[in-house]
Design a protein around this nucleic acid. Sequence first.
DNA 1: CTGATAGTTGATACTTACTATCAATAACTT
DNA 2: AAGTTATTGATAGTAAGTATCAACTATCAG
Lengths: 144, 144
Amino acid sequence: MISTRTSQPDVIAALEDAGLRITGQRRQVVAAIERRDGGFSAEDIAGELEGVGRATVYRTLKLLVKADVLCKLALPDGTPMYSPSRLEHHHHSVCTSCGAVEEFRDTTVERFLRSLTREIEGEIVGHRMEVFIRCLSCLGSSSS
Amino acid sequence: MISTRTSQPDVIAALEDAGLRITGQRRQVVAAIERRDGGFSAEDIAGELEGVGRATVYRTLKLLVKADVLCKLALPDGTPMYSPSRLEHHHHSVCTSCGAVEEFRDTTVERFLRSLTREIEGEIVGHRMEVFIRCLSCLGSSSS
DNA sequence: CTGATAGTTGATACTTACTATCAATAACTT
DNA sequence: AAGTTATTGATAGTAAGTATCAACTATCAG
Ligand SMILES: [Zn+2]
Ligand SMILES: [Zn+2]
Ligand SMILES: [Zn+2]
Ligand SMILES: [Zn+2]
C-alpha cells in the first residue's frame, strides 16, 4: 500500500539530478546507510567507512537529508540521530532504549497543521514531530 | 483563559520543593530567563551573567527544564533553543528568521497520540512537536 | 581521448553545546 | 555556631559538526 523508495540507483540518480557529482565516497555513504535500518549517528558511518573522510561523511549526510532520502531526528535530549527515509512525508517513533525507528504517516497531524494556519500569525514553513516509545522488545527485556 | 505561571517566587519555590538549594547563582539564572521572552541559547545567559560560571548556567537550565518552567526546543537544523514556559502542556511555533517563540495548546495532537497508542507497538513515553514559521514582522521586513 | 573547468575531498583546526572532575565554597540543619 | 552536604567554577574533555584550502577528480567541450 505504502510505496517504498530509495533503492540505491534511485538515490544516486536523485543526486545526479540535483547537479551533483557521483563520487566513490558518495556511493559508499549511500551504500552504508542503505545497509542500516534503525537509527545511527554520523560517527557510526564515519567509523564504518575508513576510506572516507569525516568531513565528507557529514557533507554527504547533509545532502541526503536535503534530498529526502535520509531523516535527521533527535532523541529527547537533542542528540541527533539519522534514519533512512522510506515513506513520502512521515513522522517517527523512536525507542529511547534501543534506538529502533519506525516511520508512520498520519493525516491527523497534517489536518492539525492546516487548522493551525488560521490560528497562527505568520506563515508555516515546516514542522517536526517525534513520538518517543519503549518498543516491545525493550519492554520485555527490562525487569521493572 | 489560559493561566500563566512562573513568576519568579513560584519558580524558586518549585526548586525548593524539589529539595534543591536556593543559591544566588540559581536566582540569577531564573531572573535572567524571566527577563527574556523569545528564544535564547545557554550561551546568551552565560554571557549575560558574568558572575555565574558556565557550568552552573548549563546545570541550572537543565534543572529548570526538568521543573517545566523552561522549554528546550530545536531549530530545524537541530540547534538547541530555550524558551520560558508559561502554559501547562503545550507545543511551540518558532520563527526561523528571528527566533520568536509562541506557545500553543491544542487537543488535536493529544488526541492523535491517544489514537497512536492503538497503532504503535510499545509504550509511548513522550513526544516532541515544533511548528516552524516566518512571523508577521519577518514576513513584512523581507523584500522577497 | 585529451585538457580544461569546476565540483569534491580530507587533514587540520575551529566552533558550539555541553559534561566530568574535584577542590573550594556556601546553604540548610540542629 | 558548627557540621554536613549540596553546589560552584576552573579546567579539561566529548559530541557533533563546520571552515579552510591545497590537492584531486568527475564531467564536459573539443
Ligand atoms: Zn524518516
Ligand atoms: Zn527498543
Ligand atoms: Zn514552552
Ligand atoms: Zn520572525
